[in-house]
Design a protein around this nucleic acid. Structure first.
Length: 525
RNA sequence: GGCGCCAUCGUCUAAUGGUCAGGACAGCGGGUUUUCAUCCCGUAAAUGGGAGUUCGAUUCUCCCUGGCGCUACCA
């Protein structure tokens, strides 16, 4: 059975690169009907951040990557291969380090930091690969005993075999390294904690991990791990080294050049569907000429394959994320209003000639109004956290939101600025009422505004369809273009160069306010 | 410096020993629309360089170049 693991260090937040790794581990496991585990690699006490583990679990679960085994939020653990937190497994590592010591695959090193620094400096000066010179590997038994007795701090080093180490990487194919120029890695630090290398190998073995899927930065240390498996007499798992996620300048994705924490994207309002979808396509694609790009997590579980993982690093392009987010926002919203419309009006007719913007033909105006109200509520859910209290308390807020539907789905943060004109008109000059291209000068503006005011005052049934009816008749009477009537009116109502359409704005504003705003505009002329 | 990995439009990428090298994002242009947006249509844009294998290489091999990663008692 396939078993994969995501093994982050609890250093604060979930990195988007980490998310992508977790996602591929998850997808590979699911695709192969295997298990996906979470393991916490907290062997570096200095880097440990309070609350990071909880945060990691929460974020992973929020995007839908629930693990089959590993630590849970309530402090308990799922799975029978635990503990899944490395700091709770110290004894196991120590025991195995002893085993290596005994077998001669490792040795104690008593060298001071100063000596090591000096040695490396010399090596670099002489253009030699910087690595430990094995001074302590040749210590006599009596010398070791002496130093131990004198309580000189020591580390345990792996004794790298001087041989060629070859392995097959699932992403990169055959890879080989020369053991002679690989450093004798520290396995146990002087504080008694293991390093990543030891802990990782021991854990992957005992947790029966079949596929190690991790970032490319681990490729150079893989031969060390393979040597370790061999020293223990274990079979090593399969390896798959994922391409790195890159900054604009192609360096490894880092905090310095923008947001890298998944949490920050969640805060910014990105949907989990979009984040997952986007992450999946960074370094992978379905292949086979498939041109579909929008996939749910479930669909990805079906189509994912490690063979289609790219070798080259991928630049993290936020514009594409925005696009995925917009697509998903729309998809989810459409689904919601679809069922909403059918709930409100069982006999509704739906025009699907435009799949992305279904048109609903209600059997009565009441039902349509009800629909607008309910749709507004859905929109409010999307943008609520970006809206000021003063907007929320307005009884017309739902209607307003509906008029800027597209913009909310695109960028909910902009909602306030989009609907602000409903509350107070900006100051505008009379030139705003004109539009050269449309053939609207000041005279025209005055004429159509006066006519509109006159006819609208007579209208009692203040509905979008009726308003449209009245204004269209004016256009007919004047035998002019729509814009020649609509433009000055829209500008008069919003006081803006760009705004939602006249009918919706007028309907939302209400008769009284609409007429007042038209009068105010006329006063300018 | 040493070791390793990588290399198709600006970005994410598809494809095949023979294709007009395809799609998407971004860009640009046009159209629909009462404005912006949406939507539709179109356009420009890539196989890093040099050898070799081959009738034919973007694809296979080698070299170069470039980019990146690793080179800790961090992961």
């Amino acid at each position: 059975m396939v078993r994969t693991r995501f093994a982050p260090s609890p250093t604060g937040y979930l990195h988007v690169g980490g998310l992508r790794t977790a996602l591929y581990c998850y997808l590979f496991a699911k695709k192969n009907k295997g298990k996906f585990l979470l393991r916490i690699e907290d062997t570096d006490q200095e880097r440990f951040v309070e609350g990071a583990v909880e945060n990691l679990i929460k974020t992973l679960s929020w995007v839908g990557l629930d693990h089959d085994e590993g630590p849970m939020l309530d402090g308990s653990e799922k799975g029978k291969f635990g503990p899944y937190t490395q700091s709770k497994r110290t004894e196991i590592y120590l025991k195995h380090a002893d085993e290596l010591l005994e077998k001669g695959h490792a040795y104690r090193c008593f060298c001071t930091k100063e000596r090591l620094d000096e040695m490396r400096e010399k090596q670099e000066k002489n253009k030699l690969p910087p690595m430990y010179d094995r001074t302590c590997a040749n210590l006599q038994k009596s010398e070791i005993e002496e130093k131990l007795k004198a309580k000189i701090p020591f580390v345990v080093r792996q004794k790298m075999p001087y041989e060629l180490i070859k392995f097959k990487d699932l992403v990169r194919g055959n890879v080989q390294f020369d053991g002679k120029i690989i450093d004798d890695q520290v396995l146990i630090k002087s504080d008694g904690f293991p390093t990543y290398h030891l802990a990782n190998v021991v854990d992957d073995h005992f947790m029966e991990i079949t596929h190690v899927i991790r970032g490319e930065e681990w490729l150079p240390s893989t031969p060390k791990h393979i040597a370790l498996y061999k020293a223990f007499g274990w079979e090593h798992p399969e390896f798959a080294h994922l391409p790195l996620l890159l900054n604009e300048d192609k360096s490894k994705l880092s905090k310095r050049q923008g947001d890298v924490s998944v949490e920050s994207y969640i805060e910014k309002g990105y949907l989990k569907e979009a984040i997952i979808n986007f992450a999946a396509f960074l370094g992978w694609n379905p292949g086979g000429g498939e041109e579909k790009e929008i996939f749910t997590l479930e669909e990805l579980e079906e189509v994912f394959s490690i063979e289609h993982v790219h070798k080259a690093g991928a630049v993290f392009n936020i514009e594409k994320l925005d696009w995925f987010n917009w697509k998903w926002q729309k998809e989810i919203f459409n689904k919601k209003i679809f069922t909403l419309a059918k709930e409100i009006d069982k006999k509704i007719e739906i025009d699907l000639s435009r799949k992305d913007q279904p048109k609903f033909l209600f059997t009565s105006e009441d039902k349509e109004e009800k629909f607008i109200e309910e749709k507004g509520k859905i929109l409010l859910e999307i943008c609520r956290k970006y809206l000021d209290e003063k907007y929320l308390s307005d009884k017309n807020i739902f209607k307003m939101l509906v008029t800027v539907e597209e913009k909310i789905l695109r960028d909910p943060k902009e909602t306030s600025s989009q609907i602000d004109f409903y509350f107070s008109q900006p100051n505008y000059s009379k030139e705003l009422l004109t539009h050269e291209k449309m053939g609207v000068d000041l005279t025209w503006a005055k004429k159509s505004l006066e006519e509109s005011q006159k006819d609208l005052e007579k209208l009692d049934n203040w509905k979008i369809s009726e308003i449209k009816n009245v204004l269209t008749k004016i256009v007919e009477r004047f035998a002019c273009k729509n814009g020649q009537v609509f433009w000055p009116l829209r500008a008069a109502l919003s006081g803006l160069e760009f705004s939602p359409g006249v009918f919706e704005v007028m309907y939302t504003l209400g008769k009284k306010e609409s007429i007042e705003r038209i009068k105010k505009a006329l006063a300018k002329l």
